Simulated assay, not measured.
Amino acid sequence: MEHRGLDTYGYFEREGSLGQVQGEFAGVVAAARGRIRDAYGRRLHSAYLYGSVPRGTARPGRSDLDLLLALHHEPADEDRDAAEVLARGLDEDFPEIDGVGILLHGKDTLLSEAERFDLGWFLACLCTPLLGADLAEHLPRYRPDSLLARETNGDLAEALPGWRRRVREASTEDEYRRLCRLFSRRLVRTGFTLVMPRWGGWTSDLGESAEIFGGYYPERADQMRAAAVAALDPVADPAVLRAYVEDLGPWLADEYTARHGTKTPRGAG
């Protein structure tokens, strides 16, 4: 029986591990571990990898390195500045990666009730421990249900006005490619979590996500497949971005709201 990323009880199995990191990326992972420790010292509670590197699917020279850092306190300007320096240094020193993304959060936020089915789920299910004590030990098990769908991606409608502004303001090929990659990833992942409870499982593979989505929405399948391709090989075509913010994005946001509702506003209890 296909397990679809779940254990025998229907809970998420944590994806990725340090043992799955390909040899080409061992050096940058080791450097990240040392540099994070040097940059944050006692301010750091724990650090995690996520994305294609710990899943063992990264492409040398094409994939980025994604890190989540949990601090003992809420991030301050000093912490954000350190993250920028850290990301820039790793990106410049290791040609096998194409960019570094660092998420910074206080451990209390990651363990909070408000983030239980968003950042908490993300850490417990999609992040691989790199340094420190694993916060996942303080979080529950998760199932691919409508609550999780709502709290992870139920805010696409809220994001779209900002996307439209960014498309209007972009003018260079690099800016168009960067937005294409960002928007494509978000749309494919949102499309997948829209159908996740019906499909009954989890995948982080964007191509597989698009195919699963297409089984439920055949009239939108080609658009989602194209977005999955663009997420890995982004194009500098403003027409693609306009189609995202004028057609696929609004439709997906409306369908998501109708099926799962909207994400709980942060700041609400």
Rank of each mutant, 00 (worst) to 15 (best):
R189V: 09
G51W: 06
E175S: 00
A258I: 06
A82N: 06
G261A: 08
D66A: 06
V235M: 03
T109Q: 11
F117K: 15
T172N: 00
S184E: 00
A32K: 03
Y244K: 05
T152L: 12
G61Q: 01
P140Q: 10
R14Y: 05
A231E: 04
A32L: 07
Q20M: 14
P144L: 04
Y217G: 08
E175G: 03
A236E: 02
L131P: 01
R181E: 11
Q223L: 12
R225I: 11
D145M: 07
F25L: 05
L49G: 04
A239R: 14
W163A: 08
H105I: 08
E246M: 09
R242W: 13
D247H: 15
G201T: 05
P95E: 02
E211W: 09
T190D: 07
R4T: 06
D254Q: 14
R220C: 04
V29W: 05
A47F: 05
R185L: 13
L103T: 12
T109D: 13
L6C: 01
R266N: 05
H72M: 07
V29F: 03
L6F: 03
E13W: 11
C127L: 02
E219F: 10
L110G: 08
A268I: 14
C180K: 00
T262C: 12
R266A: 12
R80N: 08
A133E: 14
T128F: 04
S146M: 10
L67P: 01
F122G: 04
D247V: 12
A258R: 13
P140G: 02
D108C: 11
Y216L: 07
R33F: 03
H138S: 15
A32Q: 07
P161Y: 09
E175W: 03
D108F: 07
W251S: 13
L148N: 02
T257D: 12
P140I: 03
D81K: 14
T109E: 13
L130G: 03
A39F: 03
T128A: 06
L194S: 07
L71H: 04
V28C: 03
T262M: 13
S146Y: 06
R164K: 13
D205M: 10
M196H: 00
R220E: 10
L232F: 12
Y48N: 00
S52W: 02
G249H: 06
A258Y: 11
G51S: 01
G154A: 09
D205W: 05
G34M: 05
E92P: 08
H72N: 14
D254R: 14
P250M: 11
A124F: 00
R198W: 12
E96L: 12
A268R: 15
P54Y: 01
L18N: 04
E92C: 11
L156Q: 04
L179K: 02
S46E: 01
A83P: 07
T152N: 08
S63F: 02
C125S: 11
L68E: 07
R37Q: 15
R186V: 14
R143A: 13
E219L: 07
R35E: 15
L111A: 09
A136H: 01
R150D: 06
A227M: 04
F192H: 03
L103Y: 11
